[in-house]
Design a protein around this nucleic acid. Structure first.
Lengths: 132, 132
DNA sequence: TATTGTTATACTCTATAACTATA
DNA sequence: TATAGTTATAGAGTATAACAATA
C-alpha cells in the first residue's frame, strides 16, 4: 500500500519530467514553477510549505531558477528578513507550460476514474498526511 | 492533486523514518528491508522493480546493508550473472521490525477510512501508475 | 528571543555512460 | 548480441548545525 504510493509518486514525477524534458528542469524546480503559476509572490517559507521543499533545498532551487532568469527575489518591505518570489516576463510562460502539463496529465490519467473513487483517494491522502 | 500526492509520500517516509530512527536507515534501505521481509531471496533486478530503486542506487544500498551484516549476496547458480539477496540471522529481526512499523502506520493512519474510500484510492494510484 | 533565509558539511539519490562477466 | 550488476562522474536533494539580519 505504501510502496504503491511511492511508486505512483515516482512514476508521476517521471512522466512529468519526460513531458517537460526540453525545459531541463528538476522535479523540485517543476514543483516550484507549478506553484508560482497559481500563487502571486509567495515568500520562501510559504513556497517551501506548499511544495514540501526544505529550506536548504529551496535556496538551491531558487538560485538556479534565478540564474536562468525565470524568477526574481524581491525584498519584502513589510518584513525585511524575507523576500517575495516572482516570475519574470520570461519565466511566466514556462510556469504556465508546467502548470498546463500537470493539468493535462491529471486529466488523461484520471479519465476513467469516477468522482467517488477520486473522493476516496483524497480521503486516504489526507489521512496519511495527518497521521502523526 | 499531484502536489498532495507528493506531500503525502514525503510525509509518510518522514513518519516511518522517525519511528525507525534508532535503526539509522535511509528511506531506500527501509524500502529494501521491508521488501525482503516478505519475499524470499530476490535478485537485484526484482528488488529494484519492487522498490522503485534504480540499479545505480541499489548497488549502494545493498553495499551498506551488507557492510552492516543485514544481508548477503549469494551467487545464483542458475544464472551466474546475478545473485540472490538474503537476510542474515541478524538482519531478519531488523527487517521484521521495519515491516511491522509499515503495517502499524497503515493501520493507525487509515483507521477512519472506509473500505470504499480505500478502493477509490487504489484505483487512482493504479491509474496514475499506468498513465504513459 | 524568535524567525527568515543562507552557508557549510557530509551523505544519499539519481541519470548517464562505460565496463565485466555471463547468457 | 543481450542481460545482470558495478563503477565513475556529476548534479541534485536533504539533515544538521551555525550564522547574519531583522522582527
Amino acid at each position: 500500500m505504501l510502496l504503491a504510493l511511492q511508486r505512483a509518486t515516482h512514476h508521476t514525477l517521471q512522466a512529468l519530467s519526460v513531458r517537460l524534458a526540453e525545459l531541463q528542469l528538476t522535479a523540485s524546480e517543476i514543483n516550484v514553477l507549478a506553484n508560482l503559476a497559481d500563487r502571486p509572490a509567495p515568500n520562501a517559507r510559504e513556497l517551501g510549505l506548499a511544495t514540501g521543499t526544505p529550506p536548504t533545498t529551496l535556496t538551491g532551487v531558487l538560485d538556479r531558477l534565478e540564474r536562468r532568469h525565470y524568477i526574481t527575489r524581491k525584498l519584502d518591505a513589510a518584513d525585511r528578513r524575507s523576500f517575495r518570489v516572482t516570475l519574470t516576463r520570461s519565466g511566466r510562460p514556462v510556469a504556465k507550460r508546467v502548470r498546463d502539463t500537470f493539468r493535462e496529465f491529471e486529466r488523461t490519467a484520471l479519465a476513467d476514474v469516477s468522482d467517488q473513487q477520486l473522493a476516496g483517494y483524497q480521503a486516504v491522502i489526507a489521512a496519511l498526511q495527518e497521521a502523526p
